[in-house]
Design a protein around this nucleic acid. Sequence first.
DNA 1: GTAGATGGTTTGTGAAGCACCAACCATTTA
DNA 2: TAAATGGTTGGTGCTTCACAAACCATCTAC
Lengths: 173, 173
Amino acid sequence: MPAAPVDQPEHRSGPLLDHLARRMRIRSESVLTPLGLRPRHLVALTVLRDAGGISQRDLAGTLQLDGTNVVGLLNDLEAAGLVERRRSAEDRRRHVVELTEHGATRLNEAECALAVAEDDVLGALEAGERETLYTLLRRASAGAAGSCAQAVADGADACGEAATDEVDSAGNC
Amino acid sequence: MPAAPVDQPEHRSGPLLDHLARRMRIRSESVLTPLGLRPRHLVALTVLRDAGGISQRDLAGTLQLDGTNVVGLLNDLEAAGLVERRRSAEDRRRHVVELTEHGATRLNEAECALAVAEDDVLGALEAGERETLYTLLRRASAGAAGSCAQAVADGADACGEAATDEVDSAGNC
DNA sequence: GTAGATGGTTTGTGAAGCACCAACCATTTA
DNA sequence: TAAATGGTTGGTGCTTCACAAACCATCTAC
């Protein structure tokens, strides 16, 4: 073997992300079940809290989920009163989706409950590191939100911000 | 509404991890297909590179995957010559699984190819931040590896280290 | 040495998550 | 008025799993 110029080993986060997400999801499931939620509900709620009132189409884009399946997901959440569909004033075809107050509270409760799962999966990291991780994930998530590339292609301009507003839901465990 | 004592909003990485992993997986799929790999193969290969020669049982534990399904996964990888099953000398029931040289090379190629997907999903982060993210994920992954809790329960002592050895596969894109 | 536990394998079965298609209504835009 | 668009419903099918059952090889304990 030609002993290859060993310099810059690739550092891809993808597989690690995948791996940890899976571990976390498995742990989370048992914690979430008593609350009547599934991991994907949490994902949707989290996205909705960050994204404010967006259309289902945009939500589908952010979630990278087929539109028809978003309908079902939202049906669940709306039936539980965690989310609200309102017709948009500007375009009455659109549904503006938003967290209800109950939804925000419930999301917060769920996050508290998830502490156990997180301790388990992220146990090797100290508090400060976990916070760093959270910040990075959140930034990445916000940045990738509507997929800028696509937004640009559409001639839209939803790229610049969407990043750093305060999380303001009730924060008591 | 009672305006709740807004202090410590929960910062749970779980849902974000889930969200980003999904986005990444979707992006990765198209990049990986030409290489005849699936995202979950990459996860397994990555884990195997880090974990060295471990038994299938331990691999199943790390992957949190049912043993019977690990068999199928390894069948794929072995058929492609990326992985090798050897009978353990100490316990001939056990199969010691290890990356072949070809497997390491292929993993590296795949990681190079994944740059595109990563740029796409992690676009909001700069190079330094991505490296930080990678480091954190890797540490978390290594720490959670065999699930320390379980290892302790078994009376084993595989908790302390497993963290920071150099990645040493051929690193040329 | 024999019994029972353990690691691995095969062959199912079934559930969940999801993409995709088709048809449909309400609304907006051309 | 004719597309195009956002949302909804219902259906099909694929993939990824968990779980069960039956089996072989091997190890451990009695």
